[in-house]
């Protein structure tokens, strides 16, 4: 995703001189080298100093620019939190805070490099919007939206590198603020977002192989959440499953439960999230997810479809 992010940002920067990127000693690969070479004045590396990264981005926006602030998610959101809240949220500035390698994708780097609660943290800030694309193609759409259409503070939650393409045959295009059906069915609806969508797709494939008609939905826009779209999903499927690489609080799963209650949904609803626990074990991304109860086998067993 970070490669398509940098390729898209470079294209946007070519078209719009207001596009800047402020990085904190971590730079996306790929086209960012071209960005830096061709527009050196619009590429600012603050070094290991995340508070001033956000402050500079705010200052740029206050003078009419459309800056991106970029580093590993925990350092772009948690370390400079008050700057994100006051400078960006309170002033409602069009700055995109990019959280790269969000969730627990940096599995072996340990809990200091995990963002298990970033959606809850960012989503609690008034004015803050949240986008979490599920694959490199959707990351392109999301990045372009941030650079060209967005007019307020945004937390763009992306993976790192090597994510598979999942949306090339999606039945719907990316539309900010709307659920995106990647495939449409009638029995089961799986809602997910971000890197863990790959697992959601595997679950969908398995259920289809057992004869179920399955919808697979990318909830790329987490704030503002498409409440009407979720209500429709809850009322037009017999079974809705939310798979989320995030803590149990403040993400899509609890909000889906709330919408189900508020709208008297009658479907079965299962949610799979990370636990409200730090992760002290190591191994692959999949190993860590499994330690919190999220894997193909564990989910299929839980929903009674092994």
């Amino acid at each position: 995703m970070r490669n398509t992010f940098s390729a898209t940002l470079y294209e946007c920067a070519k078209a719009d001189p207001r596009v800047y990127i402020v990085v904190a000693d971590i730079s996306p690969a790929g086209s960012m080298a071209k960005f830096q070479t061709e527009y050196p004045e619009r590429f600012i590396n603050v070094g290991v100093a995340e508070q001033v990264m956000i402050g500079i981005a705010a200052g740029l926006a206050l003078k009419g620019c459309r800056p991106f602030a970029y580093t590993i998610a925990t350092f772009s959101l948690y370390r400079p939190f008050e700057m994100v809240r006051n400078d960006l949220g309170y002033q409602n500035l069009p700055v995109t805070v990019v959280g790269m390698g969000a969730g627990i994708i940096y599995s072996t780097l340990g809990g200091t490099h995990h963002t298990q609660e970033d959606i809850a943290v960012a989503g609690a800030i008034p004015n803050m919007q949240i986008l979490a694309p599920c694959d490199p193609l959707e990351c392109t759409d999301a990045t372009r939206y941030c650079a060209t259409e967005n007019n307020g503070p945004m937390y763009l939650r992306i993976g790192k590198a090597g994510e598979p393409t999942l949306t090339e045959n999606a039945v719907e295009p990316f539309v900010f603020g709307k659920l995106r059906y990647l495939r449409r069915g009638e029995d089961v609806c799986i809602i997910s977002y971000g890197v863990i969508m790959k697992l959601a797709q595997e679950i969908a494939d398995h259920l289809q192989s057992t004869g179920k008609s399955v919808s697979l939905v990318s909830c790329h826009t987490i704030k503002p959440l498409d409440r009407d779209g979720i209500e429709r999903a809850l009322h037009t499927h017999k079974h809705v499953i939310v798979i989320e690489e995030h803590a149990p609080q403040g993400g899509v799963a609890p909000q889906t439960k709330q919408i189900a209650w508020d709208t008297a949904a009658r479907c079965r609803l299962d949610t799979f999230t990370l636990k409200d626990e730090f992760i002290h074990n190591y191994g692959s991304y999949e190993n860590l997810l499994a330690s919190h109860g999220i894997s193909r086998e564990l989910i299929l067993a839980k929903i009674g479809n092994p």
């Binding site: 001033v52 402050g55 500079i56 200052g59 740029l60 206050l62």
Partner: peptide, 11 residues
Amino acid sequence: LSMALGMAYAE
């Protein structure tokens, strides 16, 4: 000071 810096840089 950070915001002032960003403003000055932009201008």
